[in-house]
Amino acid sequence: MLKREVVAKTHEIPPGGRKLITPWKGLAGIGIFNIDGQFYALRNLCPHRLGPLCVGQVSRRVVADEPLRDAHEALPFEPEGEVIRCPWHLWEFDIRTGQCLVDPRVHVKTYPVQIEGDTIIVECEQI
């Protein structure tokens, strides 16, 4: 049984912003992220050690096809695809998919987000 949880008005979470909600008392809650106008929701619970994932640093994935050859090369960030780094142990997750970037077996739970007018709604379990 899903319930619809009203998160915020869209203007309250500008691009690059986030909001944490706790639809269930005493549990980890959900983080809602605005990435370039698209909203994504992740459980605020890192599958690694149960840290508060959604309060971590949001950044881009750093990529390199091969080891650096000289100090003048700068490591490039991927052009898109925001990642969040859990504040406990820094595991990275793709915010759009919940996929963990350092262990392919690991996902963080994601939730569907709906925009109705100017209201952000997350569908989550009824507890």
Binding site: R61, P67, L101
Partner: peptide
């Protein structure tokens, strides 16, 4: 292995 998962960003190759 454990520390690489935390610090992957520094050696992304």
């Amino acid at each position: 292995d454990a520390d690489w998962k935390s610090l992957r960003q520094q050696t992304p190759w």
